[in-house]
Amino acid sequence: MTDLEGKTALVTGSVQGIGLAVAKALAGAGARVAVHGLAAKAEAEAAVNEVRAAGAADVRVFHADMRDADAIGTMMAEIADWGGADILVNNAGIQKTVNLAEADAATWDAILSVNLSGAFHTMRLALPAMAQNGYGRVINIASVHGLVASVNKAPYVASKFGLVGLSRVAALEYAAQGSKQAGGVTVNCICPGWTETAIIEPQVQARAALFGGDRDKGVADLLAEKQPSHRTSDPAEIGALALWLCSPIAHNVTGTSIPVDGGWTAQ
């Protein structure tokens, strides 16, 4: 079992979906957790209650807009005052399916800002302190679309390929920090395939419409097209992998992009 007692984790985009599942997994190991998201008060409070119930030593909620570098800087300073982020999970992300000819500047800017620039700003502010402490974990929730492309997702694919590249650079720059005993500083990506989250729901509904609104048939059709296992992942499975990456035993796992995609990227 990974013991994160005394560690503080920031999980962006953690009021629902994969982010909430990761936050709960880290909480179960005893971490203090900074929950983050642009959510209504009731949704944020519900997430905090779930993370606390999972075992978090303490929980705070932050609402920084990941499109705003200054807001991110303020949030990171507040977390530094709280003890600093020993673990940073960049999960906040948005997606819009649109073909290249019809994608506009606003769509491009929004997706790149949240999915890529937001992670850049949290990483540049968190990693130096991790290096000083000899332990740190950056886990960026990328996507299979950080490894392979799909039509109608140019901004999203660009952001996720960029996130994989950014993570590899950071992994190299911090690879020698810390020690085996302390756990070192590692930077990795988790690349989920079809996972039961709100972000895929528009695609599910569009595919379900081809089958008279039958959601199960829509999901099955999506899976058959891309994911050889024909099974979706549960967000808790991503949380379990993130927790393992936080263990000192994973000190030499850095610069990787780990697919959780039922064989999608093996094809």
Rank of each mutant, 00 (worst) to 15 (best):
G83K: 04
T2F: 01
A240L: 04
S179C: 07
V144C: 05
P235V: 01
T195C: 11
K153V: 07
V157G: 11
H230A: 12
N99I: 05
G93S: 10
V114E: 00
G213D: 05
G262L: 01
T186L: 01
S143Q: 02
A224N: 13
L172Q: 14
A47Y: 05
I258V: 03
E196K: 14
V59G: 05
A40E: 15
A42E: 15
D214P: 04
A119T: 10
I199N: 03
M75H: 06
N91W: 07
M123E: 04
V148R: 00
K180N: 09
A224F: 00
N188Y: 04
Q227M: 00
N252H: 15
A47S: 09
M1P: 14
E50H: 11
A31H: 12
G162I: 02
A53T: 02
S14V: 00
F161E: 07
R207Y: 01
Q227V: 10
K24M: 14
G17R: 06
G134E: 00
V15C: 15
V144W: 06
K226W: 09
I249T: 15
G178I: 04
T12K: 12
G84K: 03
I87E: 05
H63P: 00
A31P: 11
I94R: 13
A206L: 09
V157E: 11
R60I: 12
A71R: 11
L172H: 14
S179A: 06
V219F: 06
M130Y: 05
E78T: 11
D58F: 04
R207D: 07
A92K: 12
L100T: 13
M130N: 08
T74A: 15
V51T: 06
A236E: 15
A129N: 10
S143E: 05
E78H: 08
G146D: 04
L4K: 00
W194V: 08
Q205I: 00
T195Q: 02
W244H: 09
I141N: 03
H145C: 09
Q177H: 14
S150V: 04
A224S: 14
T197G: 12
E43L: 11
V253T: 13
D234L: 13
L125I: 08
H145V: 02
A242W: 03
D58L: 04
A23R: 02
L166K: 04
M130E: 04
V169T: 14
T2I: 06
A142H: 02
I238S: 13
S229V: 08
A240S: 13
P128V: 04
